[in-house]
C-alpha cells in the first residue's frame, strides 16, 4: 500500500446506531500531500480524526495509515502519527519546555534528537520556555501544540481546526510552517472553517452529514463550477438582500462582505435586467458587476445542494 492514508467505506455511529457520524467514507491521501477537510459543524470531521489516530474503533470499514490498520496495528499507528486536537490539550500548568519534554519522553525520544524538525517553530516560543502553557496567547499555544505533535517525527500529521480563534497574521505564519513540513515529506490532514486556508491545500474534501460531497484540488474545484454570478451593492444592504431574493430572476442570493452575490435562475440574465428591476426601488450608490465565483461560492453551492438532498 503506497498511499499515506487509505480509507475504505468507513462507518461510525454513536448512541447504539442512533447517530451516524460517518456514513461510508472512502478516500486516499498521497505521501507528502497537504489534504484539507472542510464542512459544517457536525459533518464528522473530528470523528474521522479520532478514528484515524486509533482513538475510536469504526462500526465497519477499514483504514490504513502509513500502511498500518487502524484497529489491529494501533500501537504502530500511535508511533507514526502526530495529532493536534481541536481543543488545546496540553498541560496548562506545565511550562512550554516541560510540555515538550513530556511528549518527547512518552515517545522515547528527546528534544535534541528531533530539534531539526521543530526548530523553525520552536525558536519563536523558546524565549518564553519557562512560562506555563495556560498563560500563553492563542498563537503561542498553537505553536507549542504543533511542536508537541511533531517531537517524535511523525510521518503523518492530523490537525483538527488548528487556527480557529487565531488572528490573521498568526494564521499566515502557521500555514507557512505547514508548507515547510510538507517539503520534508510529512503528510498533513487538516480541517479548517476558513475558505482562504482551504485554497492553500493540494486537495480538499468537502464533508457534510457524515459524507464526502467532493474531493478536488482548489483549481479543479473552481473549474468544475461554471455559473453566472453578479456582485450587487448599494446603500441599504439589508433591504437590497430582501429585494434581490424576492426578484423573479433570482436562484439564490447571499451576503458576501461589501456586496451581495446573486446567482441568476436564467443563464442569460444581463446586468441591465438586474438594474432595471432595482431602479424602481430607489437605491443610491447602486453597483452591479459580473464576477468569477471564488472557492467560497463553490462550497456554498455544494453545501446547499447537499442539504437539499439530505432533506
Amino acid at each position: 500500500m503506497d498511499s499515506a492514508l487509505h480509507v475504505n467505506q468507513l462507518v461510525m455511529t454513536y448512541g447504539k446506531g442512533k447517530v451516524t457520524a460517518l456514513n461510508d467514507i472512502s478516500f486516499d491521501v498521497e505521501r507528502g500531500e497537504l489534504f484539507g477537510l472542510i464542512g459544517p459543524d457536525g459533518a464528522g470531521k473530528t470523528t474521522l480524526f479520532r478514528l484515524l489516530t486509533s482513538l475510536l474503533i469504526p462500526d465497519s470499514g477499514t483504514a490504513h495509515v502509513d500502511g498500518f490498520d487502524i484497529v489491529k496495528d494501533y500501537k504502530e499507528i500511535r508511533r507514526r502519527v502526530g495529532y493536534m486536537p481541536g481543543r488545546f490539550s496540553l498541560y496548562q500548568d506545565l511550562t512550554i519546555e516541560e510540555n515538550l519534554n513530556f511528549f518527547a519522553r512518552v515517545f522515547k525520544t528527546t528534544i535534541e534528537e528531533n530539534y531539526d524538525l521543530i526548530r523553525d517553530i520552536y525558536v519563536q516560543i523558546e524565549p518564553f520556555k519557562k512560562r506555563r502553557a495556560g498563560k500563553l496567547s492563542g498563537g503561542m499555544k498553537q505553536k507549542l501544540a504543533l511542536c508537541c505533535a511533531l517531537i517524535h517525527k511523525p510521518s503523518i500529521l492530523f490537525l483538527d481546526e488548528p487556527t480557529t480563534g487565531v488572528d490573521p497574521v498568526s494564521r499566515k505564519e502557521f500555514w507557512e510552517m505547514l508548507k515547510r513540513l510538507k517539503e520534508r515529506q510529512i503528510t498533513i490532514l487538516v480541517s479548517t472553517p476558513y475558505m482562504d486556508e482551504a485554497a492553500l491545500c493540494d486537495r480538499i474534501a468537502l464533508m457534510q452529514s457524515g459524507k464526502i460531497l467532493s474531493i478536488a484540488s482548489p483549481v479543479q474545484t473552481l473549474a468544475n463550477y461554471e455559473h453566472l454570478l453578479y456582485a450587487v451593492r448599494a446603500d441599504g444592504m439589508y433591504r437590497l438582500l430582501n429585494d434581490l431574493r424576492a426578484a423573479p430572476f433570482t436562484e439564490r442570493c447571499y451576503a458576501f462582505g461589501e456586496s451581495h452575490h446573486l446567482l441568476p435562475a436564467y443563464p442569460n440574465l444581463s446586468e441591465s435586467d438586474v438594474r432595471n428591476y432595482l431602479d424602481e426601488k430607489n437605491y443610491t450608490n447602486l453597483e452591479i458587476e459580473q464576477i468569477t465565483p471564488g472557492i467560497e461560492d463553490v462550497f456554498m453551492a455544494l453545501l446547499e445542494k447537499g442539504s437539499e438532498e439530505v432533506a
Partner: peptide, 24 residues
C-alpha cells in the same frame, strides 16, 4: 466579541444577516 469563530460559511452568512437586520 468574536461571535462567529469556527463555523462554516453558510452559518456565518445567516449570522451576518441577523446583524444586518438588527442594524436595520
Amino acid at each position: 466579541d468574536e461571535p462567529t469563530g469556527g463555523v462554516d460559511p453558510i452559518t456565518r452568512r445567516q449570522f451576518w444577516e441577523m446583524i444586518y437586520e438588527a442594524a436595520d
